[in-house]
Structures are given as C-alpha cells and as structure tokens.
C-alpha cells in the first residue's frame, strides 16, 4: 500500500428524488508514472491508481481507467442522479493490489 493515501469525497448531504448532484473526489497518491529516473539513473517503477469507480446502491455511475498521464493526487468531478436515499460507494484500485474505499450516504429532502 502506498503511504499516506487518503481519499476525500464531497457529496451533498441531501437531495430531492431524481435530482442531479455534483460529486468531487480527490485521493492523495503519488501516481509514479514509471517514466521518471532517480539520481542514479534507474527508472522508478510505476505505481499508480489504475481504476476508480463510483456506484450508488449498487448501480454504476462512473468507471474510470487511469493511465500514468493522470496527475498526482487524482481528482475527478462528475454528476450523478439520486433516485432514492442511499449510499455512494467509491473505490480506488492501486497497482499494488490495494483497494481504497470510501462511502457517503445521502438522504432525500
């Protein structure tokens, strides 16, 4: 597991049924591209988050595949429809096999 990985997600606390909301996510991760070299000229091995998914009550919202060209601390903004009260599940898949998870619940207003 890469060190100091911390997912952060911004979701409104409540929404009306059928409303479209904006979601912002950020995760601290070096996203080592595999193209950089250290002082001795050795290539620093690739270590990135290669996939990010977001779903609501088991239904898909977005599924992102990331290449090394995505910046350090990958940030995503997208929108989702909220049909009912429930829980958003966010998952980040690291190259080393770790999966970072975050959940946010939302109520109907």
């Amino acid at each position: 597991m890469a060190k100091g990985v911390k997912p952060r997600v911004k979701v409104p606390k409540s929404a009306s049924a059928g409303e479209t909301i904006t979601i912002k996510t950020l995760i601290s991760h070096p996203m080592e591209s595999g193209h950089r070299k250290d002082k001795e000229g050795n290539i620093i091995p690739r270590s990135i988050i290669h996939r990010f998914t977001c779903e609501f009550n088991g239904q898909g919202i977005i599924d992102v595949v990331l290449a090394p060209s995505v910046s350090t601390n990958p940030y995503f903004q997208f929108s989702a429809i909220v049909p009912e009260a429930g829980e958003f599940l966010f998952r980040w898949y690291d190259d080393d096999g770790s999966i970072y998870e975050e959940t946010k619940s939302i109520t109907l207003s």
Partner: peptide, 27 residues
C-alpha cells in the same frame, strides 16, 4: 505527445447525471 498517449477512459453507468467529467492530467 506524451510518452504514453493514453490518459484516461470514463465509462458512464445508469445513474450518471451527465456524460461529463473533469480531471487533471500531465502533459
């Protein structure tokens, strides 16, 4: 012109509010 031209792919599910996304990339 990046060493690896691939940057990202966004696949949208049933509850996507719009087929749109923002992110930050390396060039």
């Amino acid at each position: 012109e990046n060493p690896e031209p691939a940057v990202a792919s966004f696949a949208f599910g049933a509850l996507a509010g719009s087929q749109a996304a923002s992110t930050r990339v390396r060039l």
